[in-house]
Design a protein around this nucleic acid. Sequence first.
DNA 1: AAGTGGTCTAGACCACTCT
DNA 2: GAGTGGTCTAGACCACTTG
Lengths: 244, 244
Amino acid sequence: MEPLRLVQPEPGQSRYAALAAALRARIVAGEWPPGSAIPSEQTLAGEHGVALGTMRRALELLTEQGFIERSHGRGTFVKPALNGASMARFFRFGDGSGQVPASRILSRDALPAPAEVARSLGCGPGETALRLRRLRLLAQRPCLLEDIWLPLPLFAPLAEGDPAGWGDLLYPLFAQRCGVHVHRAVDSIGFGSLAAEQAHALELPPGHPCARVQRQAFDLAGRCIESRTTLGDANAFHYTVSIT
Amino acid sequence: MEPLRLVQPEPGQSRYAALAAALRARIVAGEWPPGSAIPSEQTLAGEHGVALGTMRRALELLTEQGFIERSHGRGTFVKPALNGASMARFFRFGDGSGQVPASRILSRDALPAPAEVARSLGCGPGETALRLRRLRLLAQRPCLLEDIWLPLPLFAPLAEGDPAGWGDLLYPLFAQRCGVHVHRAVDSIGFGSLAAEQAHALELPPGHPCARVQRQAFDLAGRCIESRTTLGDANAFHYTVSIT
DNA sequence: AAGTGGTCTAGACCACTCT
DNA sequence: GAGTGGTCTAGACCACTTG
């Protein structure tokens, strides 16, 4: 018989919000890994000594916040990590078949993080981080050029071994090799033109207009675990926003 | 004593979804104009012969869908129309003080709608529509150039009178003069370069890179009531997206 | 003080999934 | 058939806004 886990709502906070926070903490702590099932609402309600409807409200909150997914008749599951295939959503290349671009690692170095990268990753300036340069191709033609910074004690497993065997998606690799699950990402879109070196890699003329997508990726605990800059032909860029 | 308004859920549809649809129809029909209060959940629940909690679920649905806003202790209100000040959200000009750019109407004509515009507005190709060309300025400096198409029987009141008195925002004008309330908008973003005439209006060199935002605006009933193309300096463009 | 939406309870029953 | 989440009920009480 499990003892009651009573939660004490902060003053002004509702009980279901407090319950959601408690469950979120258990998820973040890794008690239930991404993709696995958590106990049924019946069980959880009994465990915390609250009515079923109250626990449902808490689980609805966690669903809205993107921590869990519910499936009728099956159960409630910790939301699996993002797979990172979403970068192509900003560009419309060639056939538009929506397939994942192939990946080619151009370089891999452990370097002191420049100020801007350090700020983005939330680490001290000058701390060493892993920098990947990566080219992405569709039908053997270069389409995206990426500059990826990863904090270093955490991503040490990626500093070794042959990157040729990594496959086309990085985020599943982060999970397998480093135990890092990407839960949320923020993309910031801007515009610029290609430096000579960048233009050469993308097989475009120097000075060609490009779209620049700066991404920060976060894990379940809200720590920034990736700072990435992606460049692509501005003429292939497109994006749609709905306003309400 | 108001008679019961019983709703019949479609097979496979929940009762609260059917209630939400019924209320949405009354909102779209104009029974409660934008900004006005609708009856309390108590009243509505009684009126439809359902439990309070069920009516709450229906109202939650309408809230998510953007048709109503609820305010603790005050009541439930039909969501007021968009004010259209949101175009500046795509650009970062000068001081970044976030103020609304001034508006200058460059031209106003009733013309047959080109095929693409007609498709966007959902009217027959070649039907006449109202075209506005409009320049927007911050601190007396041009920043955005707009090409706006409006379907014509509906917007006839804007074909007359001096546009100089219209003010800086069009959407409030749509509501006052034409009874059109903008409920939702979809913006599609791309990059291009300025034609000579466009460059001249924006005081930029011809061929200068520009961001192009194509907007479709919709009223409560879901009809497209505006097709707009906005051009601005690509170097001032920025936008942030959160992915979960 | 009256009226509104927000929280919480304790139950019943239904729909879906898996074995 | 057992277990899950989804719907619906009927009520009590609380928190907020307004006259």
